[in-house]
Design a protein around this nucleic acid. Structure first.
Lengths: 166, 166
DNA sequence: GGCCGATAGTTTCAATATAAACTGACTGCC
DNA sequence: GGCAGTCAGTTTATATTGAAACTATCGGCC
């Protein structure tokens, strides 16, 4: 083990684990990684929102705009406008549903599917070159810590929503 | 030590450390945390970009719009419009610099400083309640892994930029 | 003194985003 | 059958963002 043990009885502040500093590190790393992936996607002619939409549809075509909005964590108005541009660019199709004239079933065009696959490959390759080069023990630790963190974040999210939207 | 040792000789795929799965977990956790903080800031009347601008100015007032743009990783045109609205809302002041009529020195108003402090306190409290509740050993491990990850991300960023902007 | 390149900021255009109002269609219930 | 409430999607208004063109100013150099 190469992890230095912090002094258990510390006189000054514990410099080894300031949560706020780590939070900022995560924020900056996220921004760095997203920007790098975005510039690769841009070379394919895709923006991040467009890629997110395409890759979500790749998992299961035929979903409604409402469901897509929920999966992407954006508003349905946002999806409506985003889809307008992507239909115009011949990446996605809005198909009518026989039983329900309110909703659309969304399908990828061939062009959309091809671009989605290239984008997914680019993203996977980037992640493999960066996160994938870490020791497997670190990856296992990271995932475990992230999952613990997520639990706390879920609790706080519920508490915040309950307080702000009573 | 509570870290379970993974089997060293595995027959099937190593399900314990798929980098792409961990990457998606980080993306979703980041979105979750940012959204929660954003909803608390919104209760103060601040958006995320506005809060970022205010908290950056809190660290050192008097900087130029150009420097602010670099610190926030946004374009100077972006800062220009964002500042227009925040000056209008009486959160920030553009002051002339005696020696240079090109640039402005940016200062917080009292209202801006008060709001910034409340926002910073809200963010710190959120991070303490979530990330701060993890065992200190996990925090130390997390920071070490993040720093390693960052190194790989930096290398890839440089390579990507060199390839796309020759 | 005056020109050239660099610098600071603004403006413009298009994309992305939320929130909220609105339209049309479906569903349950009486 | 018909109305109330819900649901899917669009529209509108505003904010945020990048990219690129534009304006004004500064600095150095001849």
């Amino acid at each position: 083990m190469t992890i230095p043990a912090p002094a258990s009885g510390n006189i000054s502040a514990d410099l080894g684990a300031d949560p706020l500093r780590i939070w900022f590190r995560v924020i900056r790393l996220h921004r760095r990684a997203v920007n790098t992936v975005a510039s690769e996607l841009k070379a394919l002619g895709l923006s991040i929102p467009q890629f997110d939409l395409l890759s979500t549809l790749t998992e299961r075509e035929g979903m409604s705009q409402q469901e897509l909005a929920e999966r992407l964590y954006v508003t349905k108005g946002n999806v409506s406008g985003l889809l307008d541009r992507m239909v115009e660019a011949d990446l996605v199709e809005r198909r009518a549903i026989p039983g329900d004239r309110r909703s659309n079933a969304l399908y990828l065009t061939k062009k959309g599917r091809d671009l989605a696959e290239k984008g997914i490959a680019a993203q996977s390759a980037y992640v493999q070159r960066t996160l994938g080069s870490l020791p497997s023990q670190d990856l296992a630790d990271l995932e475990r810590i992230i999952l613990t963190w997520r639990e706390r974040a879920r609790i706080e999210e519920d508490a915040t929503l309950a307080k702000l939207e009573p």
